[in-house]
Design a protein around this nucleic acid. Structure first.
Length: 639
RNA sequence: GUCCUCGUAGCUCAGUAGGAUAGAGCGUAGGAUUCCUAAUCCUAAGGCCACAGGUUCGAUUCCUGUCGGGGACACCA
């Protein structure tokens, strides 16, 4: 995937990565749910061939899943209930026939009917051991799926205005977008991670003004102090923009101003007869300053993202989209389709606008695609609205081959969803589909008390502050412990607590514990072969207890979890699965406290020890596989 | 006023490509530590899945409406 915008500050990153040190080898995918379903379908087809069932069965609603109740067996299918109408049979009659045929499978030991027509199946014990060996063989590639069939998906996230460092408000979208991309990659999609750079709007003008002032300040700190309101006022008046305010005053602009000074020297000012620094007219400095300022801000943002372990593949410049004529071309495209017209909108309801006046505008017919009103494409000064360039950008993504697009936005952009989806439909002849993930606010707390932040006071918490306070992995995992569309409290103290109610710690502790068991085994049984090969070849008969079976069963579900989370585009499900697995593992491990026979390490019984260590290793692998989706490094020990 | 989103145990939250007796943590009440990490585990109590209709063999899940919390509503992004 080439980077499309590489002018100036758009230095391309490395090409999209294909995941952590692996190829998506479709042939080497393990998923026993799928295997059982394949067998089930095969048996159904045999029954069709024999004339027991009619041709042309719709099997789309047939599922194979693990029943909630352990007593119901290993897996259950609803096939009889879903197919009974098509087959013209009563559910239980069909279930009866099916249940008799199922043990024909290599995987299924027995099947029986329950409830309204469920078929509960017991799998052969060897199936679970095969799962364990498969995990050891595949390592963290276990859980990979081919459900995406290499379909191209574009995930756009962060996309913060390049006007300053990222702060906590950006953190959630950044992490959710990155994890979603990781999840889709694991599920077999061809994922492109993307950032849309709004470097063309009025905010960039504000940035330019602020940086110019900082530039003046560097040249003459006394005359142009950032704290000197009178001087600032005099400056804006002199520039012919008395309403202009310096919106951005953070110190992070000083390096940008220094870069301006390094690049342009004193060519953006004049000197009075006394040598005093004098600003020159806006037209002479705004363009060059904006360019340098955006470049520096984008560097800052990329560095912030890198601290969080986020590296996106493509950065697309709004300015570039506009200057290359892509907005004009998408507009003429839409005009051809009669999607654009000149018209006057009704005044918005529910809020008073003092300065509202009827005005003829260039409008996009988004109502034809379910939006509430048609949306303006041009500002009154003739320049494009943000919406117009965004349409051009999304069409650009479509033309690059992305028929599936995902945007991760803050919930405050919710009102923008329908028009953007409408635009993507219109600009792709209905071929591309855009889904939008809205992330709710994160409330930053400390010891249960909300932390007071204000941009004005300059004490807002940056992403870097957050990372420095608790660490990248904690931030990433914690922000994924709740579905994005629900608000989230982030407590700086609680998140570092080492107890069960902190998911991050609890899962990491389970992973660390798998390592400590191996360290202990090495101490107590230095001669035991614990190589991958030895574990894979171990006699697993010792793992037939209920607790072991529970662990194996849970780990067998991992590929299914990946697929359903990818299908739902909900990475947080991975977090809950890992918590569940950690809990089951801790419980199994603790059995050894009450009954020494159940301990992992038995110096007198190397076979049993080896089998149990194989199980521990599998748990370690599955946890690591899950954490890799989140971009979180598993811990080998704690403290 | 319109649109989006959420409503599940006392609290914080999972779950729902429609499935069998709705789960977890905290908190509450008990219990386990000569022991591979007690940084952990076990047991118990706790529910009209906001409410009302609809779709069907079956709805916490899908549809419609009501109520309640949050968010958004020209020429900012």
């Amino acid at each position: 995937m080439p980077n499309v915008c590489t002018d100036g500050y758009f230095t391309p990153n490395d090409p999209p990565r294909l995941g952590p040190a692996r190829q998506n080898t479709k042939s080497d995918i393990m998923n026993i749910f799928r295997d059982v379903k394949t067998d089930l379908v095969r048996i159904l087809e045999t029954m069709v061939a024999k004339g027991i069932l009619p041709d042309g069965l719709d099997l789309s609603r047939v599922t194979v899943e693990s029943p909630k109740e352990r007593a119901h067996g290993d897996m259950a299918t609803n096939a009889a209930m879903v197919l009974c109408k098509q087959a013209g049979m009563k559910p239980r009659d069909l279930a009866d026939i099916l249940a008799k045929a199922l043990p024909d499978s290599d995987l299924i030991a027995s099947a029986e009917i329950a409830g309204p027509g469920f078929i509960n199946m017991r799998l052969k014990e060897s199936v679970w051991f095969d799962v364990l060996r498969g995990i050891l063989r595949l390592n963290t590639a276990y859980g990979d799926s081919d459900m995406g069939t290499g379909t191209k998906v574009n995930v756009e996230y962060v996309s913060a205005n390049p006007t300053g460092p990222l702060h906590i408000g950006h953190a959630r979208g950044a992490v959710v977008g990155d994890a979603l991309a990781g999840l889709l990659l694991k599920a077999g999609y061809d994922v492109c991670k993307e950032y849309w750079v709004n470097d063309a709007g009025s905010q960039i003008d504000s940035l330019g003004w602020a940086v110019y002032w900082r530039y003046l300040e560097l040249l003459d700190p006394k005359a142009y102090a950032i704290t000197d309101e009178d001087a600032i006022k005099a400056f804006t008046v002199e520039m012919g923009a008395p309403d202009r305010e310096l919106e951005y005053r953070g110190e992070y602009l000083i390096p940008a101003a220094q870069a301006v000074l390094d690049t342009f020297g004193e060519s953006l000012i004049s000197r009075g007869a006394d040598g005093a620094v004098k600003p020159v007219p806006v037209s002479q400095w705004l363009d060059p300053i904006r360019l340098v300022a955006v470049e520096k801000m984008l560097d800052l943002i990329k560095a912030d993202l890198a601290v969080m372990g986020i590296v996106q593949d493509v950065f697309t410049s709004e300015r570039d989209i506009i200057q290359s004529g892509k907005v004009d071309s998408v507009l003429s495209y839409l005009k051809e389709k009669d999607m654009v017209y000149r018209g006057i909108l009704e005044p918005p309801k529910g809020q008073k606008l003092d300065d509202w006046e009827p005005r003829e505008q260039t409008l996009f017919r988004s109502t034809q695609f379910g939006d509430d009103v048609d949306r303006p494409l041009q500002k009154s000064d003739g320049s494009w609205t943000y919406f117009a360039s965004d349409i051009a950008y999304h069409r650009e993504k479509y033309l690059r081959g992305f028929k599936r697009q995902i945007n991760v936005w803050g919930a405050d952009h919710g009102g923008y969803v329908k028009r953007m989806q409408a635009a993507v439909q219109a600009a792709s002849q209905g071929e591309a589909a855009l889904t939008i993930k809205l992330c709710q606010m994160v409330r930053l707390l400390d010891k249960g008390e909300p932390m007071k932040m204000s941009k004005r006071a300059g004490n807002f918490v940056t992403l870097r502050d957050l990372e420095a306070a608790v660490g990248k992995d904690v931030v990433r995992f914690y922000l994924l412990t709740r579905k994005p569309d629900a608000p989230l409290d982030f407590d700086l103290t609680a998140v570092k607590e080492q107890s069960r109610d902190n998911m991050v710690f609890y899962v990491q502790y389970a992973h660390a514990r798998t390592h400590s068991v191996f360290r202990m085994a090495d101490e107590q049984m230095p001669d035991l072969d614990v190589s991958d090969a030895a574990l894979a070849a171990a006699d697993l008969a010792a793992l037939s207890g209920p607790a072991e079976e529970q662990l194996l069963r849970l780990m067998a579900e991992w590929p299914r979890i990946v697929e359903s989370a990818a299908e739902a585009e909900e990475p947080h499900r991975i977090a809950y699965y890992l918590y569940d697995l950690a809990s089951t593992f801790h419980g199994w491990w603790t059995q050894g406290r009450e009954d020494t026979a159940l301990r992992v390490i038995h110096p007198e019984e190397p076979d049993v020890t080896q089998a149990r260590l194989a199980l521990v290793m599998a748990v370690r692998i599955v946890i690591a596989s899950g954490l890799s989706v989140f971009g979180v490094q598993p811990r080998n020990e704690l403290n």
